[in-house]
Design a binder for these strands. Structure first.
Length: 886
RNA sequence: GGGCGAAUAGCUCAGCGGUUCAGAGCGCCUGCCUUACACGCAGGAUGUCGGGGGUUCGAAUCCCUCUUCGCCCACCA
């Protein structure tokens, strides 16, 4: 008998195998799409370059990797395009913070030097992020790595802008937008996030100019009263009617403002009188437009009070808006104009990048019209041309698409794509240009480019096709657009996903993907989202260092179902990731055992005669078939967790716990070796997408591997009907049950493995006995493991016993005596339980409705069950009598 | 203010009309170093499936309602 050809350590050490395997995959170009074949395309959600990745990002990318590896093994030309996002405002913020630490601002450096500085930063984090993706095993096509500021990519961005301009979908809007006083830029609606706040509602008296009294307004932002140009009432509100057309004296500012009637006022809210600040509130802006009111700004861009001298008194000018609020309240109080302050919870918008309270501000910005882009996408969704999983996001998506508003695409930043709008300083002609013009095409005068840059999402919304070279008609574009699956976090469904769908449909006339997979969120034990700012972010590299990449992947994939959150305890990585590590180690040891048994020329399963297979052989082969079928179906439905769990069961509970044990007595049987090799090979392939490293490592060691074979590009197992065997499934299930009963009895009576025992399986029905006869060696072996001697003879009564489902029973006789009292007690309890079950079932079966309405097979099954239970009860009664129990 | 989701074993979560649906992992208890694995093996305990109604022959599973948590959306100052 040939000994093992190599020795493997009993503990798997991922650190020694993972890096070299990754290099090997790279060297063989397995991550490149196959030159031919049906493409399967995923574009990575390009990570921001603001910080290194945490486990939340890892989840997202591992899901993509599982899908791409699965499809690659199925023979598709799998293309996973990686890259990174310049993340305009976010990145600029981080670098500005760095500069601030040096006591400088971006204005000290100047635009060019600042942008250079950002580039340096971005190159560094970019490298780290790519490195992290490799460490977690991502099989991206690195030859096509893109960055949203690449030269070619920038051309795409510019082309889009100019096209939209030419189509009349871009316009200059003078309106109130969300302004971040910290980032000093406009934000889109989506970038100004709602946060619930415990604010106050201030009731303030505005005196009538004619001295005849006051009206009282209610506001949450008293400091904006300096910018009031009217007070509005609802036209049908009797309280306000008498005042319409009258003049009020604005407190503190000392200007006169009118009372106007406007439908938008809610009679129910506050006092019914609304102060109107057109330059600092979007609603008030609309009112201002309707009533042709002046719109003075009373705050500076950085959130301090400042404006026309008649409105902003010297004592307030330059004061921060929140300090100004306190001061104004004091002044009002002193003048007796403050009626009351009542608590008023409401929502305040904050900048999604720096968390500063956003200030609505009248400003000129570029907008893109969205309705014409959104409508066809919504229609396509309703026609089922793409789907979102989990399906529950449907309402959110549709609601957003139905109520879409124009998109503010200009940002007062330096880091990003400069807006390609040019203005002639002489004739004021304004146009968008694909090239940088030097002179005005109309009058030849000098030109100026718009100083602002585009919203970062204005480049990322082109990701599915700009990355493949659009607007050039490249081969890549023809082959890889449209793609297939987009995997991302639900929080950017609007910000990014819906816009990609719109741009794809608009510019490419095809939707960019067929499925949007929205992942869950990785949270800590307090259910807080994992993030750097909260300090609960875990670097996936730390986990990999401790437990290995496969353990990380296993935990994240197997730990949560489709779209569900995954909880990671940052203070106890061990308990979070140990299951993954343990599973890898289990796989390793099964491999160690099986590999030590396999000869170099192990037979294929096809060359083994059916007749030389035992029940256990046929059973495990059949289980393998079931696993292939179920795991494949789960993956096709994006249920990665189900697929992983099914494979886990096959490997651990079926292959290791039962088959490997059952086969030990006949390890010199070539058929057994063939079955072992086949099942292990199948398991490795099925598991490879989830745990790529250890499966590759073990698969390499299987007999018959050629030097350039790699599991990463080998075939996905397919089902073969001739190996499925329902008979074997059923029969082996019975063997298992019998063995389990024996073990249970042994444990219950604390029979040490050294104690000699005899047991019998007494079967009801001769045919089944015959079946078992044929499987004697399996049973004998398993029984031996339990230190049980198994034979077919009946044994003395009075021994411990078990009855199971189909009426067969196990009787175990001990060489010594048993505790009769204890056994009586046990039997009585069991008898009682059974009696209860029987009476419940009998009631059900005597229910006419059940018998007539339930499906026939259900009724039949219940009848059969009742019959069995009654038999069992009789057997128990016999035992009780035999033992002399009362 | 709307919409969505979640509440199942001590913890983290599967299951989402009948088919072992009362489950998995971790933890816990009892035995075991049985020639792959103690990151293991065998056996075991633990849940009125958030409360209350309803539909049904039958409900963790569908409907209503309440409570508690999340999330998303929202121009009521």
């Amino acid at each position: 008998m040939p000994g093992p050809e190599f020795e493997l350590p009993p503990q798997y050490d991922p650190r020694t195998v993972e890096p070299s395997l990754y290099q090997r995959w790279l060297a063989r170009d397995v991550f490149l799409p196959r030159p031919s074949g049906d493409p399967y395309v995923i574009v990575i959600p390009p990570p921001n370059l603001t910080a290194v990745l945490h486990v939340g990002h890892a989840l997202n990318n591992i899901i993509q990797d599982v899908l791409i590896r699965f499809e690659r093994m199925r023979g598709r030309a799998a293309e996973w395009l990686p890259g990174t996002d310049h993340a305009g405002i976010a990145t600029q913020n981080v670098v500005e913070k760095q500069i601030a630490a040096e006591g400088k601002t971006r204005f000290d450096l100047g635009r060019e030097a600042f942008v250079e500085r950002v580039w340096a930063f971005v190159r560094e984090t970019g490298d780290t992020i790519i490195e992290q993706l490799k460490i977690i095993g991502c099989s991206c096509d690195w030859s096509r790595t893109r960055f949203t500021l690449d030269t070619a990519y920038s051309r795409s961005v510019r082309e889009t802008f100019v096209r939209l301009w030419e189509e009349g979908l871009i316009y200059r809007g003078h309106r109130v937008i969300h302004w971040c006083p910290h980032c000093l830029t406009a934000l889109s609606d989506e970038e100004a996030e709602h946060h619930d706040t415990n604010g106050n509602l201030y009731h303030i008296k505005y005196p009538l100019v004619d001295g005849s009294g006051f009206v009282t307004v209610a506001t949450t932002r008293p400091e904006t009263l300096l910018g009031d140009t009217a007070v509005a009432v609802h036209p049908k509100d009797p309280r306000g009617k008498p005042y319409v057309g009258k003049k009020l004296r604005l407190p503190i500012a000392n200007v006169e403002i009118p009372v106007v009637a406007d439908d938008s006022v809610d009679k129910e809210f506050g006092t019914g009188f609304v102060k109107v600040t057109p330059a600092h509130d979007p609603n008030d802006f609309d009112i201002g437009m309707r009533h042709k009111l002046a719109m003075p700004l009373v705050m500076t861009e950085d959130g301090r009070m400042g404006g026309p001298a008649d409105r902003v008194p010297r004592e307030l000018a330059g004061l921060d808006r929140f300090d100004a609020r306190k001061k104004i309240v004091k002044l009002l109080e002193a003048q007796g104009l403050l009626v009351k302050i009542e608590p008023h919870p409401h929502s305040v918008r904050r900048c999604y990048r720096c968390d500063t309270v956003v200030e609505p501000r009248l400003s000129d910005q570029w907008f893109a019209k969205m309705k014409p882009l959104a409508e066809p996408v919504l229609a396509a969704y309703r026609r089922g041309e793409f789907k979102i999983v989990p399906e529950r996001w449907r309402a959110t998506f549709e609601h957003w698409m139905e109520n879409i508003r124009d998109w503010n695409i200009s940002r007062q930043l330096w880091w990003g794509h400069r807006i390609p709008v040019f203005t002639c300083t002489k004739c004021k002609h304004q146009w968008a240009d694909r090239q940088d013009p030097t002179t005005c095409p109309k009058c030849g005068g000098p030109v100026e480019q718009d100083p602002d840059v585009l919203d970062t999402w204005f480049s990322s919304w082109l990701w599915p096709f700009a990355t493949f070279g659009w607007p050039q008609h490249t081969d890549d574009l023809a082959r890889f657009y449209p793609g297939h699956t987009l995997v991302t976090a639900p929080e950017i469904l609007q910000l990014w996903v819906s816009r990609m769908l719109m741009s794809g449909y608009h510019f490419m006339e095809r939707l960019p993907f067929t499925t949007v997979y929205l992942t869950g969120t990785v949270r800590d034990t307090k259910h807080r989202k994992m993030s750097k700012s909260l300090g609960n972010g875990i670097d996936p590299r730390d986990v990999v260092q401790l437990y290995g990449t496969d353990a990380l992947r296993w935990t994240l994939i197997g730990g949560g179902s489709l779209g569900a959150d995954v909880i990671v305890d940052p203070d106890d990585l061990e308990s979070t990731f140990a299951p993954g590590r343990n599973f890898a180690n289990k796989l390793w040891n099964i491999g160690r055992f099986i590999l030590s048994q396999l000869p170099r020329d192990v037979a294929t399963i096809d060359s083994v005669k059916r007749t030389s297979l035992t029940l256990a052989d046929r059973w495990i082969l059949s289980r393998a078939q079931a696993t292939i079928r179920e795991a494949t179906a789960s993956l096709e439905q994006f249920r990665l967790d189900e697929a992983a769990k099914r494979c886990f069961e096959f490997v651990w509970n079926e292959l290791a716990d039962w088959y490997v044990e059952a086969v030990k007595p006949r390890l010199d049987d070539p058929a057994a070796k063939a079955v072992l090799a086949h099942c292990f090979d199948t398991a490795l392939r099925l598991l490879h997408p989830v745990v790529p490293f250890i499966t590759e490592e073990l698969w390499q060691k299987l007999p018959g591997r050629k030097a350039d074979d790699l599991i990463a590009v080998t075939d996905w197992p397919t089902t073969r009907s001739e190996l499925a065997d329902a008979d074997a499934d059923a029969q082996f299930a019975r063997v298992k049950t019998a063995i389990e009963r024996i073990r249970s009895i042994r444990a219950e009576y604390r029979i040490s493995p050294k104690t000699r025992l005899a047991a019998a399986i007494v079967l009801r029905g001769g045919d089944r006995a015959a079946t078992f006869e044929g499987e004697r060696e399996t049973i004998t072996r398993l029984a031996h493991l339990e230190s049980l001697a198994l034979n077919g003879a009946a044994l003395p009564t009075g021994a411990a016993h078990a009855v199971f489902g189909d009426g067969s029973e196990v009787v175990v006789a001990l060489s010594g005596s048993i505790d009769v009292q204890q056994e009586c007690k046990r039997l009585a309890t069991e008898s009682e339980r059974l009696e209860k079950l029987i009476s419940g079932l009998a009631a059900r079966l005597s229910n006419e409705n059940f018998v007539s309405r339930a499906p026939a097979e259900v009724v039949a099954k219940e009848r059969e069950k009742e019959r069995t239970w009654r038999e069992q009860r009789d057997v128990l009664a016999g035992k009780l009598r035999a033992l002399g129990c009362v």
